[in-house]
Each structure stands twice: as C-alpha cells, then as structure tokens.
C-alpha cells in the first residue's frame, strides 16, 4: 500500500478550472519532481494538499487514513493533515521577528507541545542539517535568500512531516544562491524524506527525483522515471514543454 494516496482532486477559481482530477500515489521515500508550464496548477496542487486552499473535491489518505480535502468543517482534521505535510514556499516566509532558531522551534513548541529544551535540541539539529547552525541567532533580515530558504527547509523538516512539499524553492533566489539550496534538497532527498518538488530547474529535477510528473491544464499527462519523462516523453504537450525548456534530449525534428 502506498504511503500517500491522492484521489480525484478538483479545484477551480470561479470558472477557471485549475485542477481537473489529479490522482497520485506516493511511496515512502519517493522524490517526485513536478514540472509543467506556469499557471497549470502546480502550486495549487501543493496548497490543496495542506489545505491552504480548499478544493471542491478530493481526498488524501496518509497511512491508510482517508481525509476529505474538500470539507471545510473539521478543523481537527485540517490541523492533523497540516502536521503530516510540511511546506517550503517560494518566498521562504520566515517569521520576521524570530531568529533562525526560534523559527524552527516555533512549530515544535506551539503545535507539537514539546518542551523548550527538546524543541531547542531538535531545532539545532535541523539547522545543522541544512548548514545553518552558525546562523541560529540571526534574524531573517540578516540572512541572504539562500540562507533563509535553508532555514525554511529546516523549519519544515523539524516537524517530521510524512510528506514535504516544496513549491519552486529556488525561483526567488539570485542565481548564485540556487546551488546551496539545491544541495540541501539533494541531501535530504538522499536521507529518505518523501517529497513533492515543484521546480523549473529541469537538470536538478532530473538529477534528484526518482519520479517525474508533468502537469498540464490541471491533469497529470506524464508520469514516469526521470529518464522516461525527459528522454522519451509520450505526450505531445510534454515534448513541446521540454523543447521549450531545452531539456528534450532527443533531437527536435525540425532541426533535421
């Protein structure tokens, strides 16, 4: 049985259908790269999974327990779900008035009700994992974008989510900082965290993921190993997209 099973996810904003029936089973330790043109609903998918958006329809089961994503009523379930999923945002979204250490401790203390000492121990460990231990006392405004994103990753990991959601974690970074964040993601992927990674860094997605899905117009049109998707895409739209991103490894026909 899969660790996580997403079934029939539908979401629209007014008349604009963004997700049109997404189904996805995620195995423990899967690193799933999600690619697709902008505006196809990649962020919306991640945001529905931790209920920052409420879809019209759809369920998620984690460890065999099914949760209805479309119901607004059950606050307890939403909170339980949010504790099973961790989110890393494009804009980092660190708490401005807290140090790096306090940022990571916050959820441990407030949500998981851990003691101050325990929270501190875990937080320091996570900061170490992302190479930010020396910056534990620094406030976000003292940190570069890449450093802030690494703290944000530590903050999400500290909660030990079953599923880590990363929404274009390097898109807001200056080019010279992209590498440090990708290195951290690669490291945690190797450590066995299950994650959904939305990214336009095609080479990185290919390198770090063990599965890649291509989403277009609100549905999954391609799903396979990185090699299958990047070297031998089945769908026309995938080919077109990859050609645009200069990632299609077979020679485009028009060159011949």
């Amino acid at each position: 049985m899969s660790l996580i099973e997403i079934k029939d996810l539908h979401k629209k904003y007014k008349e604009n259908v963004v997700l049109d029936g997404i189904n996805l089973s995620i195995e423990q330790g899967n690193v799933i790269g999600i690619i697709g043109p902008s505006g196809t609903g990649k962020s919306t998918l991640l945001r529905c999974l931790n209920q920052l958006e409420i879809p019209e329809k759809g369920t998620i089961s984690i460890n065999g327990k099914e949760i209805n994503l479309s119901s607004r009523k059950n606050k307890k379930e939403i909170l339980a779900l949010r504790q099973n999923t961790g989110m890393v945002f494009q804009q980092f979204n660190l708490f401005e008035r807290k140090t790096a250490l306090e940022n990571v401790e916050e959820g441990l203390i407030v949500v998981q009700k851990k003691s101050k000492e325990e929270a501190r121990r875990i937080a320091l460990e996570e900061l170490k994992r992302v190479g930010m231990l020396n910056w534990a006392n620094h406030y976000p405004r003292h940190l570069s974008g890449g450093q802030q994103q690494r703290v944000a990753i530590a903050r999400a990991l500290a909660m030990r989510p079953q599923l880590l959601l990363l929404d274009e974690p390097t898109s807001a970074l200056d080019p010279e900082m992209v590498g440090e964040v990708l290195d951290v993601i690669k490291k945690i992927a190797a450590e066995g965290f299950t994650m959904l990674l939305v990214s336009h860094e095609m080479a990185f997605v290919r390198n770090v993921s063990n599965r890649v899905i291509f989403i277009d117009k609100g549905v999954v049109v391609e799903d396979g190993t990185p090699k299958q998707v990047f070297s031998n895409p089945q769908n026309e739209r995938t080919k077109e997209f990859l050609a645009k991103m200069y990632m299609l490894e077979v020679e485009p026909e028009y060159i011949i």
């Binding site: 931790n50 209920q51 920052l52 606050k75 909170l79 949010r82 504790q83 999923t85 961790g86 989110m87 945002f89 804009q91 980092f92 979204n93 660190l94 708490f95 401005e96 008035r97 916050e106 959820g107 407030v110 949500v111 944000a152 903050r155 999400a156 909660m159």
Partner: peptide
C-alpha cells in the same frame, strides 16, 4: 502590514489562526 506569507507558514506548521495571531 504583516506579510500574508507568515500567516501561511504558520498555518502550514499546523498553527491555528489564534495561535498565529498571538505568536506571529
């Protein structure tokens, strides 16, 4: 004036609106 992202981050951690309001 507090960036909406901080509220989302708090929510994503599993904090309630009240907790986010009080702490962040």
């Amino acid at each position: 004036s507090v960036s909406k992202g901080q509220l989302e981050a708090a929510n994503a951690l599993g904090m309630t609106y009240g907790q986010a309001l009080r702490r962040i």
